[in-house]
Design a binder for these strands. Structure first.
Lengths: 229, 229
DNA sequence: TATTTACTTTGACAATGATCAATTTTGCTC
DNA sequence: GAGCAAAATTGATCATTGTCAAAGTAAATA
């Protein structure tokens, strides 16, 4: 039974981008250091300040990483989706979690112990390399968020968000499907939900976008970009 | 002459925390991939958007990493001091610099090429481990800054800054020596210089701190901390 | 030391965005 | 589909913080 579980965990791991390319032996070793978590919608996986045991691998679902504040409000720092990892940094730091993690939908998460991760990386340089790349990406992403928060107006933040959410190509018209509620997006953009709503309203009035529930249609990428500066 | 220079670079490297413990051969190999930069005060080492060639090691001086904005203003993200590194992330990412780097005082910086860093890490796992730890620290630090910017008032930001700048012990009275100008600190705290000045003024009035040029004396750590919540 | 330049402080004012409250809409559960 | 709860919108108001301007101070340079 346990062997069966370990085996299935190894199989799950093998499908995650981070662990792709590892040998069966390596996967087996890592799977031994794994714990499986099935969390329901709104369930909290860990709180800011908790002592971390390892790194998390998202297999299924959606989890938000957020900074709680003394009052009820919180600032969402990142949304994690399938195939991604989070909490990498705590593997190397001996510090409590700097954020809280809460499931936005029913999710399946693997917790890989620090020790096992460190050992696996010691014997497999490619894994180290991927972890380095992952942390680097996260750092750049966070810098981008910082830039948004500190030197852009609410309008600019929303416009940048819309443009970045579109395909990389230069199609003038495209749809943005919000992957979560608007208040959620607002928090990521560091805006009050009301402000977000109003900004979308303004852009609609000007005929630059069209809002239908969680789908926003950008009607004129060029003109929209003018609001960036 | 060149050999002489390479040798001295290897020696400098051996004194940097990141490279401490490497063999002479390893240091020699890395030094081959190094370029030395001596920058004067206010000189720009690189701009946001430039294509990175490698990672930087600060040997001497002080360099600020900042996000420029369309208008003249900028947001300082980090101050780099001797013995630290910056631009680690670009080694793993193939992306332009997300920040600009400008010397705040005459500085000596080494640029270690991406290729050489990657090779050195491949053969020395301890180096990978240190890079991972460094990136992780930076990430947590940035999360802390994010927390500050997004869910604290100007007063709270300043108070947190003062308390964090003090020794870890619980001495009620201590000095904080600002390592740069007040407008500089203000930018790091995401405040207008005027606001920073006013907040310090308020705290002085209440008898919680005393400001003398670039030295701030905290008179009552406990009471000051009350402003955090 | 004199002179200029940069930094800091202070005041008055403006504006962006948050908050509060009420209403409408959406989506979920039974 | 009815009823309920959560989410979104809209309006009115307010507060925090930024901006502009001016004066004062410190520091750098000749």
């Amino acid at each position: 039974m346990i062997l069966e579980t370990r085996h299935s965990i190894a199989e799950i791991l093998s499908r995650q981008p981070l662990f792709r390319g590892l040998s069966e032996v390596e996967l087996a070793q890592i799977s031994v250091g794994c714990r499986e978590f099935r969390v329901k919608k709104n369930e909290v996986l860990f709180h800011k300040g908790d002592i971390p045991e390892g790194m998390h691998v998202m297999v299924m679902g959606q989890i938000k990483l957020a900074l709680p504040s003394s009052q009820g409000v919180e600032k969402i720092v990142h949304m994690c989706g399938p195939g991604t990892t989070f909490g990498e940094a705590v593997v190397f730091l001996d510090k409590p979690y700097p954020v809280s993690a809460q499931a936005m939908s029913e999710s399946l998460v693997l917790l890989v112990s620090k020790r096992v991760m460190l050992e696996a990386m010691e014997s497999n340089h490619m894994l180290s390399r991927k972890m380095l790349a992952g942390l680097s990406s996260r750092l750049h992403e966070l810098l981008g968020d910082m830039e948004s928060c500190t030197l852009r107006t609410s309008m600019q933040r929303v416009v940048c968000f819309l443009i970045q959410s579109g395909a990389a190509d230069e199609t003038p018209v495209f749809d943005v499907a919000l992957q979560s509620s608007k208040q959620n997006i607002a928090s990521q953009l560091n805006l009050a939900p009301e402000t977000f709503s109003r900004v979308l309203g303004h852009l609609s009035e000007k005929g630059l976008i069209q809002v239908k529930g969680r789908t926003i249609t950008v009607l004129d990428r060029m003109q929209l970009r003018n609001f960036t500066a």
